[in-house]
Amino acid sequence: MNQSGTARVFSSPAIDQVGVVERAKRFTARSIKSQAKRQGLGMVLSMIDLTTLEGMDTEGKVKQLCYKAQHLHDSIDGLPNVAAVCVYPNFVGLAKRSLAGSGIKVASVATAFPSGNSSLEIKLADVSMAVSEGADEIDMVISRGRFHRGDYNFVFDEIAAVKAACGESRLKTILETGELGSLDKVRLASDIAIAAGADFIKTSTGKIQPAATMPVTLVMLEAIRDHFQKTGLMVGMKPAGGISKAKLALHYLIMVKETLGDDWLDPKWFRFGASSLANDVLMQIAKQQTGAYQAANYFAID
């Protein structure tokens, strides 16, 4: 069944989808007001991976994004920077230079993103290129076709190989949950990725619908929690795609807090993969400061 090394038996707890949806809905009933909201909105900003992953990406687009990452909204004092800028491997060097000194990480997708349909050699070369250009973080995709065939050892080995190729860079493993078909499979893929050495698990490429949802994220958070309870080791979580509103992002943070605890409320352990979320958060912060509801035209789009 597997072509490389030891056969592992992968089994994950069953997931009841209706129960997960109910639990996820419960987080959205939390009311986040005043000080908690201010603190939460700041956290959301600091956890954003500002992302551009388009075929038509240019140096100009990447430069603009890097500028935005460091100057979210200069008319508001004391805003944090975003956590990272996420680009294709060929823009890593540029992003690295543009963000020099800012503390903002550069993340790069790799491994034949977004489909992952290529040979291991090419995927590893992809990773090595991004790493050598200075990527702090690598966002890989798992081989969903092999996963659906039941080649769990293949999927595991591939993640482990990519992890080895990452060196000092942190590895985010994209499950592409929208292609997995059920929450049971999401849980299994999460467990495989964590066991294979992923530093983060991530929902989606952003190219497939549905992308991140609260139920999917909850299942992945529970996998992280179970791993932590068994081993004491922390793994990060990154929902990506579909989170564009501040209120929803705050509910994600409630979910992280109640599932994993306050230790995960840190850009080191939790990220939002999003492009338009930052502006909505900024509008909410401005509203809190001024008392007036904001309009999109007062916030720069990059």
Binding site: I32, K33, A36, Q39, M43, S46, L253, D262, L265
Partner: peptide, 14 residues
Amino acid sequence: MTQKNKHWNLSPAP
């Protein structure tokens, strides 16, 4: 990376 956000507690929401 910037601030650590330990102990995020909900404010009263009566």
